[in-house]
Amino acid sequence: MARVTGIGGVFLRSNDPKATAKWYAEHLGITLSDFNGAAFQWSDEVPAGTGMTAWSAFPQDTSYFGDGQQQFMVNYRVDDLDALLASLSAAGVWIDPKRDDASYGKFAWIKDCDGNRVELWQPLES
């Protein structure tokens, strides 16, 4: 049977796509390509051996995506959550005071320049 083998992309709605792409490049270190987007290769995996992409559906009334009518949330893998949060804080980015340290990694949440809740995840080394 033909089947899905992974997530091929994440696409965001924005009133100003160029400004949004610039925000992600400036604050989350995403290297933009000519098409004003990014291509993440599995070779970018940090730490090595932790590669996976999660997919899950949530109930319509979930509070996990924050307040409002946001219909999706992107989870970005990061290599140093504490350092990134310090940098984001210094830049005035909204950071949820709640943090989560799970058996499979550390989590934090921010809002991007369009007000979308974004999840940051630092996987634990195996």
Rank of each mutant, 00 (worst) to 15 (best):
M1N: 03
M1H: 02
A2V: 04
R3S: 08
R3H: 06
G8F: 04
V10G: 15
N15D: 08
K18C: 06
A19W: 01
A21C: 10
K22Y: 02
W23A: 12
A25S: 15
H27F: 00
L28E: 00
L32G: 10
D34R: 00
F35R: 00
F35A: 04
G37D: 09
G37H: 01
G37A: 13
A38F: 01
A38S: 07
A38M: 03
A38I: 00
A39E: 11
S43R: 01
S43V: 06
S43K: 02
P47C: 03
P47A: 03
P47D: 00
A48P: 03
A48K: 10
T50L: 07
M52Q: 10
T53F: 04
T53M: 15
T53P: 08
W55F: 15
S56G: 13
F58Q: 15
F58T: 02
P59S: 03
Q69T: 06
Q70R: 12
Q71D: 09
R77Y: 08
V78T: 14
D79E: 10
D79T: 11
D82S: 09
D82M: 06
A83H: 02
L85V: 01
S87G: 11
S87F: 00
S89M: 05
S89R: 12
V93D: 05
P97N: 07
P97E: 10
K98R: 13
R99E: 09
D100I: 04
S103M: 07
K106C: 04
A108P: 10
I110M: 09
I110Y: 06
K111A: 05
D114M: 12
G115P: 08
N116F: 14
L124V: 09
L124A: 09
